[in-house]
Design a protein around this nucleic acid. Structure first.
Length: 659
DNA sequence: TTAGGGTTAG
């Protein structure tokens, strides 16, 4: 290998240093969606230059000023400033020249005529070997696929990918990769094998694999993305944070926290430097499933990795505590707000909205209002989302007057209520049974030029169903269809439940049939409604059979469903069946929760089996489950009556020595 | 590529 002069080495190292500084300083300015491989590409170009300096000359643009000019960087990847001197491809042949011209002019009929005499694939080969513009070749490539139904070989795909990549036509690289992953014709090992056999070995393939992983994520092929991530290393491809982050994010969205953890560890093991987005993604993933301890550990890890937490980091953590925290969760959320301030990380509107939402969910409206005021004191203007959150808080508390006051504040703040504002208010009135007021709001939204959504209609339909106004509910369903708002599965669920609740099982069953006929699939809520209705009628065994039907449909029964059926068995006095279903639910990976224990304890108490009820109470404590008021209300009187006394904490019941 | 608000089972 040719050696590199010291001067060149120094230049490159200096430029590399500037480049890294630039990238870290300007990462916000770079549109990575448009240029996801920029960092990697630049490093590859550098890498290439270091090893083959004789093939490159440094353009005069490669000055400190040039490197530090974001405008230049936006439009020129680093490799742009390195000009390949030795690339001497064969001259374009006459036929190829004619074809290129025809493609450029989109004269496909003439091309068809030519193809009567020639092989389309051979022409593609010639085009790929020529100096024709990759933008032109890709048109022919696609036309062959679309118009002639040609299934390109993986070899052709790879050549096309390299050509487009070399021509820096990245948008087309992405499109081609989308096609490649969508048709699923080639496995990951086939693609990796072919890529490793073709192109150069200086990182372009790694960047292509990076883009391939992103294509898998973009096209919702998550398991393929993970497989690619796992196997890339075996083929010598070095992935970047730009492909790892989307995989982590998709795994977190899918609630696959184990997969996310694995991918993160794999990333570290492969020495792929995580960035703050990596940590924010992982933290948000942990928070989503309530693993707050691990999320907190990640906050510490950020510092270990020499990174600084951002406002997004704290927003994710605060949201995690607000939504998944236990006792004292809002104190912890408040403490995080103080902590971020002490670190000079400025809370933004999202931070305050998150906290307001947390306090509202906690029914602590005064604290929510305190935050609302505080954000304004700090110079942050509340937005529509802030107000909607507060309105929802007041509505949930049944305080419609306060909710309307917030709506008035919106006018003062020059904020226009949106359809969500109306949905929240309509829901508030519906929950209070004030259907007239709710309906008037729908008309008001219309007058204000806001388009009611499927949620607007569902809210109101459910309101009517809950007060037994089924005719009005059905009329509203017709109205929504007339206004081109398609009823969704929730619309049907509200109506079906309404019919069952109002004792019209026939109408509910008919609607179920109609719903299925027009292509809506029952979801977990539909099944819960059906199960609830059957259990109420004393047909628990029939309800239990729906569990199998669900599994066949690929739906996993949830706690509510198991608990409803267990409760049904208990009410029927069939404790054996209830206990056996409880075993089944645990086998299905659903741990019995407080409600499960409550219904079982209640069933045992009704049967007079207080010893066994007490054993279950013990068991739930041993498993770290906190009995709630309902638990004690169920057993208290009967236990005491039968000579059991609560222990000093009022928890366990023990046989009293005193009769 | 990361963070916040609206409907249905209970």
């Amino acid at each position: 290998m040719a050696s590199v002069s010291n001067a060149a080495k120094l230049t490159i190292s200096f430029v590399s240093c500037c480049l890294m500084t630039f990238l870290s300083l300007n990462s916000e300015h770079l549109n990575s969606a448009e240029e996801p491989t920029l960092n990697a590409l630049n490093m590859n170009a550098l890498h290439k230059a270091v090893h083959f300096p004789q093939r490159f000359r440094f353009s005069s643009i490669l000055s400190l000023n040039g490197i530090l000019n974001p405008e230049i960087f936006k439009f020129n990847s680093f490799s742009t400033v390195l000009t390949d001197k030795t690339d001497s491809k064969p001259k374009i042949s006459d036929q190829v020249s004619v074809i290129s011209e025809l493609i450029s002019k989109q004269h496909w009929r003439k091309i068809r005529d030519i193809l009567k005499e020639s092989n389309p694939d051979e022409i593609l080969q010639q085009l790929l070997d020529s100096e024709a513009d990759p933008r032109v070749i890709i048109q022919y490539f696609r036309w062959l696929e679309g118009a002639l139904g040609v299934l390109h070989s993986l070899d052709m795909y790879c050549r096309m990918l390299h050509l487009l990549f070399d021509g820096r036509v990245y948008s087309q690289v992405r499109k081609l990769l989308n096609g490649l992953v969508q048709n699923e014709k080639y496995s990951i090992s086939e693609i990796f094998h072919k890529l490793s056999m073709s192109g150069d070995s200086f990182g372009v393939n790694s960047v292509l694999v990076d883009m391939l992983v992103q294509a898998y994520v973009r096209n919702s092929k998550l398991s393929m993305a993970v497989e690619a991530l796992k196997r890339a290393w075996d083929y010598g491809f070095k992935l970047s944070v730009l492909s790892c982050n989307p995989v982590l994010s998709a795994l977190a969205d899918a609630n696959d926290v184990k997969g996310m953890e694995y991918a993160f560890k794999e990333m570290i093991r492969r020495r792929i430097q995580p960035d703050i987005i990596t940590f924010n993604t992982v933290i948000s993933g942990f928070c989503k499933v309530g693993q707050l301890q691990k999320a907190g550990d990640c906050l510490e890890d950020i510092k270990i990795w020499g990174l600084s937490p951002s406002v997004v980091t704290y927003n994710a953590l605060i949201d995690g505590y607000c939504k998944k925290g236990r006792i004292g969760k809002m104190n912890r959320a408040d403490a995080l707000l103080k902590e971020m301030r002490s670190m000079n990380i400025c809370p933004n509107e999202i931070t305050y909205n998150t906290l307001i939402n947390g306090f509202c969910r906690d029914q602590n409206l005064s604290a929510a209002m305190r935050i609302f005021k505080e954000m304004q004191d700090k110079g942050l203007q509340p937005g529509v989302i802030t107000c909607n959150t507060l309105i929802k808080g007041f509505c949930a508390d049944g305080k419609m007057g306060d909710a309307l006051d917030v709506q008035n504040v919106m006018f003062l703040l020059d904020l226009k209520p949106d359809i969500v504002t109306y949905n929240v208010l309509i829901n508030g009135y519906c929950k209070k049974g004030m259907l007239k007021e709710a309906r008037e709001l729908l008309d008001d939204a219309d007058e204000k030029g806001l388009t009611p959504t499927v949620i607007t209609f569902n809210t109101l339909i459910d309101g009517y169903c809950k007060v037994g106004m089924m005719d009005e509910a059905v009329a509203l369903q017709k109205l929504m269809m007339k206004r081109n708002v398609d009823p969704d599965i929730s619309t049907y669920n509200c109506l079906i439940n309404g019919f069952y609740r109002n004792g019209d099982a026939q109408a509910a069953d008919n609607l179920l049939k109609t719903m299925k006929k027009i292509g809506h699939t029952a979801d977990i809520v539909t099944y819960n409604i059906m199960v609830g209705a059957l259990c109420k009628k004393g047909k628990t065994r029939k309800a239990a059979r729906l569990l199998d039907e669900m599994l066949e449909m690929g739906l996993a029964p949830n706690h509510l469903m198991y608990n409803t059926i267990i409760d049904g068995y208990c009410r029927e006095g069939n404790i054996t069946a209830a206990m056996s279903l409880r075993m089944q639910m645990e086998k299905d990976g659903k741990r019995a929760n407080v409600v499960t224990y409550n219904v079982l304890i209640k069933g045992l108490c009704i049967k007079g089996k207080l010893e066994e009820a007490n054993q279950l109470l013990n068991e739930m404590l041993e498993k770290g489950l906190n009995p709630n008021r309902i638990t004690y209300d169920i057993i208290k009187d009967e236990m005491i009556e039968k000579g059991f006394v609560p222990d000093i904490d009022g928890h366990l019941y023990t046989q009293s020595a005193v009769p």
